[in-house]
Structure formats: structure tokens, C-alpha cells
């Protein structure tokens, strides 16, 4: 699904990612854990196509297609989805309008007909139940005045509507209390399928109790220093990130 080979990224003159390789197969859930400043957020931004980063080496492919040349919206239409760590508030653009614009852009790209207003409403009402959100959220401006938990749920709602192939979740657990975390995790778990892959970027192991990954990678100073199964996350939780340095 997603294949990253020896990816090197700079911000200005500073090297942030120093050769990352990852291979995520369809249906797999990978987690990337790492301390602050290890390059986790840079990786998620580069994958989504944010400006301000220079790729100096390596490659990123989604289902064999080179991602680097694609504009962010094309990546999204090709099935790549980033759930933001800090979702942006967009006053004046209603949630439902954005959801509809997003879904139809994806469908058009895939050669499908656009969904009309009625069908769309039925579809989105079904998805919103999944996230335990009130329908009122649909008519509010995107993320405006939402609590931290509501913003994260809204990200998952967008994901549920757009039905991407490759979901990248950037610190989805940050700022969530335990109830919100369970709802978000349940939403994500319901979207897991043989054809959909996930990359969860997180500082803490907590989220991985609810969304159990197939593979865990540890990122430190721009490199993947260790890869293992879900038990690696537990080990990190107990011993902290200092332990990784000692092993090396």
C-alpha cells in the first residue's frame, strides 16, 4: 500500500528525516512511536504534501505511484488521508459542505458520479452515528469552537466519509480523555479492513491499547531504530525512550 524507501527530508538546512524505510501492506496497522523531536510530525506532513519541506533523497509510493509529484488534493483523491494532530478551525465553511465537497472530489477522481444532496445526507447521518456525534455538528463551521475530543472525532468522521485506503493518524490520542479515546478508537476499528491500511503516529502507548497495531516502529533522531510487534510498545511504555539509546 505505502512504500517509503530511504526517505530524507530537510527543513531549511536542517536534516529532520535521515533515511526512513517503511512498507505497509494492505490491511496492516503500523505504529510509529518516538520522543519529541524525532521527526514524527514531519513524516506525517511530508506524506500529506505540506509545503516547507525538502525531500533530499529516497522515495514514497502509494500503490506503486510516486507520491512526491502529487499535489496534496491529488494524494487525498488517491486515497491518502491525514488525521491532523491539530485540526484547523475554518469559520464560515460548514462541516457538511466540506464533507460533501471532499467526497465528491474523491468520487469524481475515481470516475464515479457525484452524490446528490439527499443520498449524501443519508450517508453522512449513518457515519456520524459511528462517532457518537450529534447531527448538529454537521451544520457547524468546521472545527470552530469544537473541544479537543470533538475535533478528533470530526477527523475520523471525515475519514469515514472519504473512505481512504491509507490513513495516517498524527497524535490522534493527544488531548483526549479516556472516554473520547475509546469512541475515537472504536470509530477507527470499525474502519479497519483488509484493503485499508493505517499508520498511527504517537508518543504514548495508550492509544495502541485500543487500536492494536500489527507492527511497531521506533523513530529516534530521524531514523527508525527498532521494529517489532505490539509488545514493543509496552516495553517502551515501561522503560521510556532512553532505553532505545542504551540498546544502541
Amino acid at each position: 500500500m505505502l512504500s517509503i524507501k530511504d526517505l530524507q527530508v530537510k527543513i531549511g538546512d536542517k536534516s529532520i528525516l535521515k533515511g526512513i524505510s517503511l512498507d505497509i501492506k494492505p490491511g496492516e496497522v503500523h505504529a510509529i512511536m518516538g520522543p519529541n523531536g524525532s521527526g514524527k510530525s514531519t513524516l506525517s506532513h511530508v506524506l500529506a504534501g505540506k509545503e516547507g519541506y525538502t525531500i533530499t533523497g529516497g522515495s514514497i509510493e502509494i500503490e506503486g505511484q510516486d507520491l512526491e509529484e502529487m499535489a496534496p488534493e491529488i494524494r487525498a483523491r488517491e486515497g491518502l488521508f491525514l488525521a491532523f494532530q491539530y485540526p484547523v478551525e475554518i469559520p464560515g465553511v460548514s462541516n457538511i459542505y466540506l464533507l460533501k465537497a471532499a467526497l465528491n472530489a474523491v468520487r469524481k477522481h475515481q470516475g464515479l458520479t457525484e452524490v446528490d444532496a439527499l443520498d449524501f445526507l443519508a450517508l453522512v447521518k449513518e457515519k456520524i452515528k459511528l462517532l457518537g456525534m450529534d447531527e448538529k455538528f454537521l451544520y457547524r463551521s468546521v472545527n470552530q469552537g469544537f473541544s479537543g475530543g470533538e475535533k478528533k472525532r470530526n477527523e475520523i468522521l471525515q475519514m469515514a466519509v472519504m473512505e481512504p485506503k491509507m490513513c495516517i493518524m498524527d497524535e490522534t490520542d493527544s488531548g483526549l480523555d479516556i472516554d473520547a479515546l475509546q469512541i475515537v478508537a472504536a470509530g477507527v476499528n470499525s474502519l479497519r479492513s483488509e484493503k485499508r491500511s493505517f499508520l498511527m503516529i504517537t508518543h504514548y502507548q495508550r492509544l495502541l491499547d485500543y487500536i492494536v497495531p500489527d507492527v511497531v516502529h521506533v523513530l529516534a533522531d530521524g531514523r527508525i531504530v527498532k521494529t517489532g510487534g505490539p509488545e514493543l510498545a509496552l516495553e517502551l511504555e515501561q522503560k521510556g525512550y532512553g532505553w532505545i539509546g542504551q540498546v544502541e
Binding site: 500529506a48 504534501g49 505540506k50 488534493e73 487525498a76 475554518i90 466540506l98 465537497a101 474523491v106
Partner: peptide, 15 residues
């Protein structure tokens, strides 16, 4: 706001 434009692009909307 660039961050808002990028957010919308990441939701499949053209720039």
C-alpha cells in the same frame, strides 16, 4: 491562512 488552505487540500479540495 496557508494552514487552512492545506487542511482543505488534504480533504481532496483543489487549491
Amino acid at each position: 491562512d496557508d494552514a487552512s488552505v492545506f487542511y482543505l487540500q488534504s480533504r481532496a479540495v483543489s487549491e
